[in-house]
Amino acid sequence: MSATGYVAVAAQVAVVAGGAPLLTGWMRQVRARLEGRAGAGVVQPWRDARKLLRKEPVSPTGTGPAFRLAPLLLVAGTAVVAALVPLAATRTPVSGSADLILVVALLALGTVALALAGLDTGTAFGGMGASREMTIAALVEPTILLAVFAVSIPAGSTNLPAIVAGTIDHPARTASPAELLAVAALVVAVLAETGRIPVDNPATHLELTMVHEAMVLEYAGPDLALVELGSQMRLAVLLGLVATLAAPWGVATGGSPALLALALALLVAKVAVLGTALAAAEVFRAKVRLFKVPELLAGSFVLALLAVVGSYFLTGEAGR
């Protein structure tokens, strides 16, 4: 494997780790602009992170290793996903085992770790957040895996680089109805997975409506920084994944460093566009009641199922 392969992986992780707070800052800025506010600037999340890292670490009484390990595992898991997913290059040392099911499972691992940390505190909020998060995660799982199934059919394998390379070689595939349905289902799943507006409001203060924040109410200082970095990276990686699957052009298939740099730039651009669209959409939508979320997810599940069945009947060329 050429040196650029290793560089590509390192670059991907660096871009995702560094860029995630920027992406969140950018989305908050877009939202502020749309609401007529001036907005805190794109770099504000970095400042928050730096300030939090310097604050005094606090561990509430009665919490155990689960509480301490969860933020670390969240960030590490997302970093591994960032390394695996061919955001910038398809031929990397890890592309052999970059499996879409593994990626989905690693993200689920982060959710489970956070839910366990919520339960570890033993407070009512921690339990409530964990219970709701696991309910939503359990309902999102079928949708994501069926979307994965639909996307993997044209490429004949769930290996991500193979899928992306396949889509690059056959551009018509992105316009096929199966692909569109799959990506739509994936977008709804991403909203649920990262706890954005229709499913959960990240900026809410009302504990009883929280899903994701309720679990992290007890975190302070560095732990809180990691938790926020983790959820920002998760959003960045998922948007990157959607971008790569929907519009794979620009992802470096060859080995030259120049193509890699171009790919990274294009990646940042695509994710920024998706971020803007998401932020803008959030202005127009309000948070849905918790027990309406299953209907939302059921809808996306049907989309994914149609994608799979459709791709079989329409194209019928389900290659091996």
Partner: peptide, 11 residues
Amino acid sequence: RARRRDARLWD
């Protein structure tokens, strides 16, 4: 090297 403080659960 801030020492990790044990605090009451936020209630």
